[in-house]
Each structure stands twice: as C-alpha cells, then as structure tokens.
C-alpha cells in the first residue's frame, strides 16, 4: 500500500517535471523551427510542425544585411573584454586570496548592482571626448566592467583552494612574483580560468545596453543589430528567428561545456550566501 502510494507520488513528480521541461523547451524550439521554415509557413496558423526545412532565412539574413560583420564585431568585443577581464582579474584574485582581502570583491559587487544606464552617461561623454564612440575599444573597455567582477568571483575559490606551501616554496626557490603566478599558480587553477573565460565571454556576448549607445556602424554587435531588425519593422519573422538562433548558439554551446561546474557554483553560492 505504502509502496503503491510512493510510486504514484513519483509518477506525479515525473509528470510535473515533464511539463516544466516542455514549457522551458517549447519557445526555444519554436524559435529554431521558425528559423528553418519557408517564408510562407512561418506565421501559418495552425502551426505547421511538419515542413521542408530551408536555409533561405539564414541566406537572406547574411546576404541582405550586415549580420556577418555584426557577428564578427560581437566576437571581437566579447573576445577582447574576456581577455582584458581575465588579465586584470587573474593577478588581482591571486593577491586577494593570498592576503585574504575581501573588500575588493565586495567593491566589484557594487558595479554589479548599479544600473548600467548610470555609467553609460559619463562613459558617453568620456568616449566622445576621446573620440572613441563607435570603436571596438570603447565596447571592450565597457564590457570589461561586466567581465572583471565575474572573473574575480569565479577565480577566487580556485585560488583559495591552492595549498599555500606550494606558493611559498616557489618563492623560496627564487621564483619572481610573475613567475610564481604564471608557472606555478596558472596550471593549477587552469580549470577555473576556463570557467571564468566562458562565463565572461557569454555575459559580454549577451550584453545589450552598452553597445546600444556606444557602438557605431563599424562596431555594431549582433545583439544590437538584431534589436534594430525589430525596430525597422522587419515583418519577416523567419529572418528574425534566424538571427535569434545565430546569437543564441554561442551561449548555449559554451554553457553546455561548463554546466556541471555552473550548477555546482550556484549551489555553493546559495549555501555560503
């Protein structure tokens, strides 16, 4: 009797989880399906689930707009700000962990909390004065404000887990500080660097607001270009969903690689508070 009740509960749980999965997957599946539908069937109701997939939406997207250039811009900005964020965060996180400093980590939270619009106004004036509005550099610098805190927070626990003796003995053996950092610490925290790099890249790739204001014709990111498609009243939903599919791919693939650590990090964060 009890065993039967448990089985029923378990079945009910599984049904609930199935519904959750359906609700989470359906919109994304709809986006991808629409991207591959022939133009005449994209907005057809009742929806056609069986159709001959076509690449015409992608062809139109890349041939008739600058989406390829926009995607390259996104790669430059996300790659550049990831590199800059890691370059700044790596030694900083090492020193913070070594000297058990907590205030810089708390200070970076500040940047995470303030609305982006707040920084954008002075930045616009600053970059206008420097003649950098519309350049890749302005976007890399501003996106590094997003990536730097992420990199520090991801790297800190990895440095905390390093045995102090190893670093100390490296210094006794005459390693200079940067040698210790590169030859001893880096190989040991390499998995952390990979996780940090992936998260930085995804967050920078996804970021909308800064590029909305600071990018120019030659530096427009794929994210902002997609937004402009909506604004230009693009009624071709197929091409719109093709663009959405293209910009959704890098984050989805990259987070797939680190999903185990990502969920582990979320859980640990919840426990530590």
């Amino acid at each position: 009797m009890v065993v039967g009740a448990r089985r029923v509960t378990r079945l009910l749980d599984a049904v609930q989880l199935g519904m959750v999965v359906l609700v989470l997957v359906a919109p994304v599946a709809w986006m991808v399906l629409s991207a591959f539908k022939p133009r005449t069937e994209v907005a057809a109701l009742p929806p056609r689930l069986v159709f001959t997939p076509t690449l015409e939406n992608f062809a139109e997207l890349f041939q008739r707009t600058d989406f390829l250039e926009n995607t390259v811009n996104s790669l430059i900005v996300a790659g550049g700000s990831t590199a800059l964020g890691l370059l700044l965060a790596f030694p900083a996180a090492f020193a913070m962990s070594w000297h058990r400093m907590t205030w810089p980590a708390t200070a970076t939270l500040f940047a995470r909390m303030a609305p982006g619009t707040l920084f954008l106004l002075p930045w616009l004036m600053m970059f206008t004065a420097l003649g950098l509005v519309g350049s890749h550099l302005a976007l890399i610098l501003t996106h590094a404000v997003i990536t730097l805190p992420v990199a520090i927070w991801v790297l800190l626990p990895y440095f905390d887990a390093l045995p102090r003796e190893i670093i100390e003995s490296a210094e006794i053996d005459g390693c200079r500080q940067h040698q210790t950092l590169l030859r001893v610490a880096l190989p040991m925290v390499a998995p952390g660097v990979v996780v940090a790099a992936i998260l930085c890249f995804v967050f920078s790739w996804n970021y909308f607001l800064f590029a909305l204001v600071l990018s120019g014709f030659d530096s427009k990111t794929a994210i902002v270009a997609s937004f402009n498609f909506i604004g230009e009243g693009v009624t071709n939903w197929g091409a719109l969903m093709a663009a959405a599919t293209v910009i959704a791919l890098p984050p989805l693939i990259l987070t797939l690689i680190i999903q185990r650590r990502l969920v582990g990090g979320l859980s640990a964060g919840a426990v530590k508070g």
């Binding site: 378990r10 749980d13 599984a14 989880l17 999965v21 989470l24 997957v25 919109p27 994304v28 709809w30 986006m31 629409s34 995804v202 790739w205 996804n206 909308f208 994210i223 997609s226 937004f227 909506i230 939903w237 719109l240 969903m241 663009a243 959405a244 910009i247 959704a248 984050p251 989805l252 987070t255 797939l256 999903q259 185990r260 990502l262 969920v263």
Partner: peptide, 29 residues
C-alpha cells in the same frame, strides 16, 4: 527526483544563459 543532471540540467540552464535580445524576439513572435 534527483533530476538536475544531464539533459534536464541543460534545459534548466539554457533560459537564463540566453541573450535578453533573444528572449525579447521570441516574446514578440
């Protein structure tokens, strides 16, 4: 259900890793 693994974990992470622009475009359509 001990379910936050494998494919289910991927499904759970995907929505909040998607660019907000993609969320907006899906909502519009």
């Amino acid at each position: 259900l001990h379910a936050a693994r494998g494919l289910i974990r991927t499904v759970l992470i995907s929505p909040f890793m998607l660019p907000p622009v993609v969320i907006g475009m899906m909502a519009i359509v």
